[in-house]
Amino acid sequence: MTKILAVDDSNSLRQMVVFTLKQSGYDVVEARNGTEGLQKAKAGQVDLVLTDVNMPEMDGITLVRELRALPSYKFTPILVLTTEAGTDKKQEGRAAGATGWLVKPFSPDQLIATVKRVLG
């Protein structure tokens, strides 16, 4: 089963993402910040990482950088969930090694479409 790691400090958004992904048949691991995300990613290989940017403890950009430094996550798709409409965060995310992004607010359908686009 395809396993996705969802990292967001907002409970409601994380719940929405997790619920939506599970409904679509994905196996989902949750984390509330970058530190927890990194730890869970290390604990078990996932096929896709979705991460928020602004989080306490460790932000999403740092998480992307840390993940990319791991051999097992060298090519794993990592999507950044950002509310930033500007290009700053996108560029920052990509410089850190993110695959792409999904701009908040997004609907469950948009989320699934994006995930499918990455995972095929």
Binding site: S12, L13, N54
Partner: peptide, 17 residues
Amino acid sequence: DAIFRAAHSIKGGAGTF
């Protein structure tokens, strides 16, 4: 930073919901 994050989360959630 923490105040910003709180506002940021509310904005993100508000848009989504």
